[in-house]
Each structure stands twice: as C-alpha cells, then as structure tokens.
Amino acid sequence: MADLAAPADREPDARGAYLALTRRRRLYSGLTLLIFVVLMASGFAVADGRNAGSFVDGWRNMLDFPADVVAEAWEKRAEMPALLWRYVPALIETLNIAALASLLGFFGGLGLSLVSTQGLAPFPRLIPVFRRIMDVLRALPEIVVALVLIFIMGSGPVPAMIAIALHTAGALGKLYSEVNENADLKPVEGLQSVGASWGQRMAYGVIPQVAPNYLSYGLLRFEINIRASAILGFVGAGGIGYELRNSMTFGLGKFDEAAAIFVMLFLTIVVVDQLSSQLRNRLTQGREIAP
C-alpha cells in the first residue's frame, strides 16, 4: 500500500511544476515576441525618419513609376521586339559574367573546402586559416571589390567577374566543407593504403561521393550570380545592368528601353530558376542508372 501511495503524493507536485514550467515558457515567448514587435516598430520608425520620403507618402506613389514605364512601353509596343533583340548581347555578357564567376568560384570553393575539412585537409593545422579566408571572402560585398577593381582595371566585365568569383569561392567553400564532413572516409583510407597521393585520394575517394551535392549547390549559386552580375552592371561593370542604368538616368522617353530590360531580366531569372531547380532535383534525388 505504501508503494502505491508514494506516486499519488508526488502527483500534485509534478502537475504544479509542469504548469509553472508552461507558464514560465509562455512568459518568455511572450516577452520575446514583445521585444521583437518593439524592435520592428522602432526600427521602422527610425528608418522612416532617416529616409528621404516617408512611407505614408511613398506608398501612394508606389505605382506611379511602374505605370509610367508600362504606359510608355505600351505606346511604343511595335518597337518592343527590336528593343529586346538589341539587348541580347548585353544579356549574354551578364550571363557570361555569372557563368565564368560560378565556374571559377566552383573550383576555388572546391579547393578551399578540401583544405578546410577535418580528416581531408593535407595540413590540418592550417584549417582555421583557410576557414577565416573563406569568412572574409564571403563577407566582402561584391560591389566593393568590383568598384576597387574598376579603379585599377578600367570598367568592363572582368572586375565584376572577379568580384563575384571571390564571393562564390567563399560561399561554396563553406557549403562544400559541410558536405565533405558527411562524406564516408573509408574509400580515402583504402586509397591511402595503396599509396595514393593526396590529390588522388580526393579525386577518387571524395569527389565521386560529393559531386551531386557540389553540382547542385553550384547551380544554385549560378542563379544567385546572375542577379549579382545584373546589380554590378548597374554600378558600371557592363552587361544588362549598365544598359538599365543608362536608360534610367535618361528618364522619361527611354522608359520603353527600361521596360524591355525589366522583361528580359525577369524572363532570364525565371527560366534559369526553373531549369536549375529541375536539374538540382535530378542531381540530389538521383537518376535511374542509364544502361
């Protein structure tokens, strides 16, 4: 009987403790929510105060500019196909910047990830150094690197390409080293036992395991890089962004050109997005083995 009584005695305690815990948790999440709301509201007030135009006034003008652009584009709709055609070379330049930057960044990230993963690195002591290098590469805004390089090399696609490639190497290096950590080390040990060099161990033991993930992240990065390359064009690095800025600074009268560029950029991003997401699905979910 005494055995049965004991749990019954403890029960009110347990129940009270549980309720107290729940109350405390609710209080904490309520407080967190409150702090969040206050931060958002005051942050919004500060940003609104420091902005040139206020939110309330701007909100009503939001559609003015798109309306102007659409109106002018509609007026000159007959010339639209010719305009679109005219900007194809600029678009190709933007795509080339993104593609080459992704390619170079891919190889850079590959190398950086291998030398900064525990168990794979040829010089384990230097792992923190390579990690910090990747952190800095990721933290540097492309626009800054591009502008500095434009000062040295003159304007053109190369500064933008280098800027994006550096960032890509840092970003992919981090992702890839996370992938590498999940790689099975047995093939590497096997290769080591037959006297394979570091390069051979990586090429035959690690890369085949991680390649699908690498390619999938690389494709995602290519998507991101197209946007980045358009933005860098806007500050003078060539490509479609540069054309956009020219037509924007001209203002009313050239808005049909701006509209054409908007349409091209939008379509490109959507198409690449769709293609790469299909490819990525195939890569990560595996495809049936071809005969």
Binding site: N51, G58, R227
Partner: peptide, 28 residues
Amino acid sequence: FDFLRGVDALIWTIVLSRAFGPGPLTGA
C-alpha cells in the same frame, strides 16, 4: 512568390527608390 522572386532585388530597388527616395526605408 514567383513574381516577387523573379523581379530581381535590383528592379525592386529602382522601383521603390522612385517612390520613397533614397534612405534605409527603401532598402528595407
């Protein structure tokens, strides 16, 4: 969602800075 993502941050920035002028609110 597709539209919001497809219209690049660059285009949003340009459209919004026309309405709100330069400053942190436009960027946000």
